[in-house]
Design a protein around this nucleic acid. Sequence first.
DNA 1: TAGATTGTTAATCGATTAACAATC
DNA 2: TAGATTGTTAATCGATTAACAATC
Lengths: 206, 206
Amino acid sequence: MTEKMIPDIVIGRLPVYLRALQRMVQEGRQVTSSQELGERLGISAAQIRKDLSQFGEFGKQGTGYQIDYLVDQIREILNVNQVWEIAVIGAGDIGSAVARYGGFANRGFAVRMIFDNNPEAIGKLVGSFTVQETAVMVPAIQQAGIQIAMIAVPANQAQEVADKLVEAGVKAILNYAPLSLNVPEDVHVQYIDPVIHLQRMTYYLE
Amino acid sequence: MTEKMIPDIVIGRLPVYLRALQRMVQEGRQVTSSQELGERLGISAAQIRKDLSQFGEFGKQGTGYQIDYLVDQIREILNVNQVWEIAVIGAGDIGSAVARYGGFANRGFAVRMIFDNNPEAIGKLVGSFTVQETAVMVPAIQQAGIQIAMIAVPANQAQEVADKLVEAGVKAILNYAPLSLNVPEDVHVQYIDPVIHLQRMTYYLE
DNA sequence: TAGATTGTTAATCGATTAACAATC
DNA sequence: TAGATTGTTAATCGATTAACAATC
């Protein structure tokens, strides 16, 4: 590790900036400022400037940021100026919805395979993918060199699946199963559990 | 606001503690410690004790925490010792998967209605719910007194839907559309966008 | 009792904000 | 030029951790 260390909390905000900036592009906007972006996102202008300054100088005094250019730069920082292939594990409601999700295109990701261990699901079509059996998962992922997987299996199978994914060389897991996973230090995990988000809000409700 | 103010970041960790504790209950465990819980979650024992101490004294020196009791206490703190009814807006892949999701039961939530503005979707069954037209959304939510909604419509319709939900009296929104929403201060919003999580991980990948 | 673990305090660490010189 | 906005510094604010008396 020779580069200066960037706080993970900063990395976590970059995708949010990128999403808002790409939306501005869609709106036909060409230039923005840290203030405008901050207002859209509910983040202070100072924080946005500070975050971006960790990676370089992307703006111009007096005028702000050229949106196209800033989008390109953030895409490069986040390594999403390429398409990452994804394996989806679990072909139930969630896995199927994710496999068919149209929102990955142009944001750096593409689902490439989907697996399930349920004999009734194996062989069926989900979007444009045939559901493969879990038994072939490790070699299939290895052969394709896939580094990113999404876990959408029941909670009691999720750790076992995670172990296999690690074995297959996966380095990033997006886990939809409602539990924390244990993985080696060099494997990244992010969690999506709607209940966690909901419970965070009910604290404030009557 | 008379109570002492609890940091939102602490509130955000409580659901994670709760999920792990409820899992321990399923495993037949009766007692745990801040150290054990911390190891499972990748959080320091000191932080867990500090977080819990914001709300009371739930443990015993020398022995730790009675899991059942701690679960009850956290459920009460988070207001999830009741069932919150949810309206789902959007009956596409994501909305349908969420409406059928079995993971809400016993965690404090129940989907009660689903809406879509696509004539082909209206009237169809999603799980045990008939998809209703968006035109009746505001009065239906008002009449049922529903305070929580999930937005699962395309990005370009999401703000419009959010405005209507606010009008209907909704106080908490879980937004699956990939953009930031603008809502009044007293309305809570949480976001689920798989791409945001993925991009946060690709930064660290080669 | 001896060992374990809590709840809490004080110290450390890190993140956010305010402010402004630089400059477009 | 005058106005606007960046990038950066220093100050503030808040969160995490270490340590330990209390006590089960």
